[in-house]
Amino acid sequence: MSIYFVSGIDTGIGKTIAVGMMARYLVHKGVNAVTVKLVQTGNDGFSEDLDRHRELMGTGKLAVDEAGLTAPAIFHFPSSPHLAAKLEHRELDLGKIESSIAELDKQFDVVLVEGAGGLAVPLTEDLLTIDFAAEHNYPLILVTCGRLGSLNHTIMSIEMASRRDMKIAGVVYNWCPEADPLIEEDSKRMILKYLHRYYQPEVLVELPEVKEPLPEPDFGAIFDGAVPKR
């Protein structure tokens, strides 16, 4: 599969950093990879999340960024897309989003689609983020961390995806400064247990603190088959 859907288990979980670091890993492995922001809210003009991706990838803005393919829906108000669109008296153009992703899929080996917030965030009044991803049969990458409360959100996300017959390609376990070490270690154990319970690949990649010099985590288990063997 060349298109992966990346969702955080909640807002502020470090999803944008994780997406940028996964794209960086792929590019350094010789994979022609790009990231997409499914819907960007709280912005005008260009997506700040994509700016962070490109910074981590070390590429600067790409031609597909300038063409608007990687941020096909941008809204000013920082909220779930259904409300941000309503406040601007606009409808979310799902067809434009789908055609942008399809065009990027033609140009790149791997496309990482970053969602807005968690899986149950409404894109429209009648369509949740997870429903959009499931309809397109995208493998899911979940981003979580060890802060208190995250285990609940992670297990619910695993169950939501599994009940929609989505494959979870892997879980990225983000560094979290306020995490209790005991909770952090037990959460990793429990996440793997519930992946197993729902017949999902037991893949968990730890992402350390992202600061200079940038770490080089191995995301190979998530992108099995997408990275050329050397």
Score class of each variant (00 low, 15 high):
Ile130Thr: 11
Leu123Glu: 05
Val143Asp: 01
Phe132Ile: 05
Tyr138Met: 14
Gly115Glu: 02
Glu114Met: 06
Ala134Asn: 03
Leu140Asn: 07
Asp109Asn: 14
Gly118Arg: 08
Leu142Phe: 14
Leu112Asp: 06
Asn137Gly: 05
Asp109Met: 14
Pro122Ser: 05
Asp109Ala: 15
Tyr138Thr: 09
Gly118Glu: 06
Leu123Arg: 00
Glu114Gly: 04
Val110Ile: 15
Ala116Cys: 06
Cys145Ile: 13
Thr124Gln: 01
Ile141Trp: 04
Thr124Val: 03
Thr124Asp: 03
Leu112His: 13
Tyr138Lys: 11
Leu119Lys: 00
Leu123Thr: 03
Ile141Ser: 03
Ile130Gln: 04
Glu114Lys: 10
Ala116Ile: 07
Asn137Arg: 08
Leu140Tyr: 00
Val110His: 10
Leu128Asp: 04
Val110Ser: 11
Asn137Glu: 11
Glu125His: 11
Val110Arg: 14
Leu127Ser: 08
Ile130Lys: 02
Thr144Arg: 13
Cys145Lys: 13
Pro122Phe: 03
Ala120Asn: 11
Val121Phe: 08
Pro139Leu: 08
Leu127Tyr: 10
Tyr138Trp: 15
Leu119Tyr: 01
Tyr138Pro: 12
Asp126Cys: 11
Ala116Met: 02
Phe132His: 08
Asp126Gln: 13
Glu114Thr: 02
Gly117Ser: 04
Leu127Thr: 15
Leu140Ile: 14
Thr124Asn: 02
Ala134Tyr: 01
Val113Lys: 07
Val113Trp: 05
Val143Pro: 13
Ala134Phe: 00
Gly118Cys: 10
Leu127Ile: 14
Leu119His: 01
Val113Gln: 03
Glu135Asp: 14
Pro122Trp: 00
Gly118Phe: 05
Pro139Ala: 11
Asp131Lys: 00
Leu123Gly: 04
Asp126Ser: 12
Asn137His: 15
Cys145Glu: 13
Thr129Met: 13
Leu128Lys: 05
Glu114Ala: 06
Leu140Cys: 01
Ala116Tyr: 04
Ala116Gly: 01
Ile141Thr: 05
Thr129Ala: 15
Val110Glu: 09
Gly117Thr: 07
Val143Glu: 07
Gly115Cys: 09
Glu135Cys: 00
Ile141Phe: 02
Gly117Trp: 01
Ala116Val: 07
Leu140Pro: 01
Phe132Ala: 08
Val143Lys: 13
Glu125Thr: 12
Gly117Asp: 01
Ala133His: 08
Gly118Thr: 05
Val111Thr: 08
His136Arg: 15
Leu128Met: 15
Glu135Ser: 14
Ala120Thr: 10
Gly117Cys: 00
Ile130Glu: 09
Gly118Asp: 02
Asp131Tyr: 09
Thr124Tyr: 04
Glu135Pro: 08
Val121Asp: 10
Asp126Met: 04
Val110Phe: 10
Pro122Thr: 04
Leu127Asp: 12
Cys145Asn: 15
Leu123Ile: 00
Tyr138Cys: 11
Thr129Val: 07
Leu140Val: 03
Thr124Pro: 00
Leu142Asp: 14
Ile141His: 03
Pro139Phe: 02
Leu112Pro: 10
Gly118Leu: 08
Phe132Lys: 01
Asp109Cys: 12
Gly115Arg: 05
Val143Arg: 13
Gly117Arg: 00
Cys145Phe: 12
